[in-house]
Amino acid sequence: MSHIDKELKQIQEKLLEMWDLVEYQLISSREALLHHDLVLAERVVKLGKKVNRYDTKIDRQCENFFALFTPVAVDLRQILATIKINANLERIGDTAEGICRIVKKLNGPLSEPLAQESRLLEMYDITLVMLADARKVLTNYDADTAHAILKQDKVINKIYRKSDKTLVDFMHQNPANVATGLQLYTLIKKMERVGDQITNITEEIIFYHDAKMIKHRSDKKKKNRNKDDN
């Protein structure tokens, strides 16, 4: 393996290690929420510091790579994508941390029927699959899977848009539990952001592998994948 490939591999390995940490944070935030597991919540918050160290480390590695290797073409795109994926992963970690801070304020576990009804758990399930799939396409690229991830975000957005009505109804019927309703709404909003961040990550992966810039495009253009974007 050439020198440049070793460097790129090292950067990618760091990114994947960070990815695993963030994925663990997100899965754990779900567990902490459902079981009111304060120990787990605290662990997720603490892991945030480790994720931040990865964030800084990866940025530094990318900066060095630019300075020393002046990358072009696929190498350039990989490093540009890495910088942005890194930033988005860090934000997902932050969100998981934020959810765990909310868990610490709750008096007990989130009621499972309520979580089901508001479709928060469904959002969790979808984003976790999206995150795992995005990791797969980063290391083993497949355009169809990548574009399927982008479609999943549409489902998340739809749930989010419908959630306010569900929650307003809930709060009407349970005036004593308005606080719970608001907290739930905050959680749903956070999960919607996670969906967006995984979408950003996936768009960067597509840019890296296919040299196609698809962010900020209308849906119609996104489907028309063979068109050049110059």
């Binding site: 050439s2 440049i4 990358p71 072009v72 073409a73 350039l76």
Partner: peptide, 19 residues
């Protein structure tokens, strides 16, 4: 610009990236 960001031929890419 195009050659150095997204060349369309693999041989071009291999050459400019030093592979």
């Amino acid at each position: 610009k195009t050659i150095f960001t997204s060349p369309s031929n693999d041989r071009t890419q291999n050459y400019i990236t030093g592979r």
